[in-house]
Amino acid sequence: MIPTFIAQIVLLLFVFHMLLIAAAAMVYAERKVAAMIQQRLGPYLVGPRGLMQPFADVIKLMFKEQLRPLGADRFLFMLAPVLSAVTAFAAFAVVPFGAETTLFGLLEEPMRLQVADINVGVLVIFAIASMGVYGIVLAGWSSNSKYSLLGALRSSSQMISYELSYGLALASVLLVGGSLSLTEIVDQQAGTWWGFLPRWLVVLQPLGFLIYMIAGIAETNRAPFDFPEAEQELVAGYHTEYSSMSFAMFFLAEYINMVTVSAVAVNLFLGGWHGPFLPEAFGWIWFLIKVSVLLFVYIWIRWTLPRYRYDQLMAFGWKVLLPLSVLNLIVTAAGVIYFAV
């Protein structure tokens, strides 16, 4: 029998390392999927089928020299990547990824598979995600380089613009779910309608899901919205001047943010850890599968769609996505009142 607080600490460390491994797996998956889409082989030399490639990358980055441009703001230049990585990790802390479990009688009392159970969890994720922009903005400003500064300026206006649609999409799914706690919303999505249609909120909120995913891609600065680092125009955008481990931290933050956005989408729209065939204790397998599918869609989109033009991005965000999400919110609110869900 293991006391609960030790189990909590173990869970914390476990989630931390799983996120690191997820980021490594994403690096590998991205290169492999990109290669498949472009009819190449992708990494295949390091380890079996190139599986050790991300670790080789990390080791290479570790031994690179840490550069700092002349005239860069020393403190902020060091702070920015740390801030990016910390907010990325912190946001995942309130994401539940499995039902309450005793780990087959190993624990004294059942424990939630969630680092911190906060009853306004959705808002906390939103708050932490909105802090993530500072890492990018500070990196761009403190580098004392025009490419970085342009990347940071683009990033801040892009993230403010898409945060609105992101928040409104969250608000409409919260209206249907009737709760601010991720765990409660997931538990509502157990079971099926008429025996075959899973009770996932995506069925009630198809438009909300679409808006959430589009805004999520923009928030995580992924293609086709990767303007902060548009390599054809800005060299590498906000992290042009970064090298070695501070560059690795930006890289890590980007992938972990993707995992978090996907995990929240799975919890809110796709029924979390609920699914057929598997007992409740193995629900986390369903969770992993769903998150992997969404992450694959992320990569798929990146290697299929070309980048927008910047004015198109802003016009799309303000003139299409925002009105759509407001409309979705109004219709949802009316529906909730009408059906008294």
């Binding site: 808002l123 708050a127 909105s130 802090m131 801040s156 403010i160 945060e163």
Partner: peptide, 14 residues
């Protein structure tokens, strides 16, 4: 955090 730190202050930084 969301509105003050996440939106208004980004405007200032901008």
């Amino acid at each position: 955090i969301i509105i003050y730190a996440g939106a208004i202050m980004v405007l200032f930084l901008f």
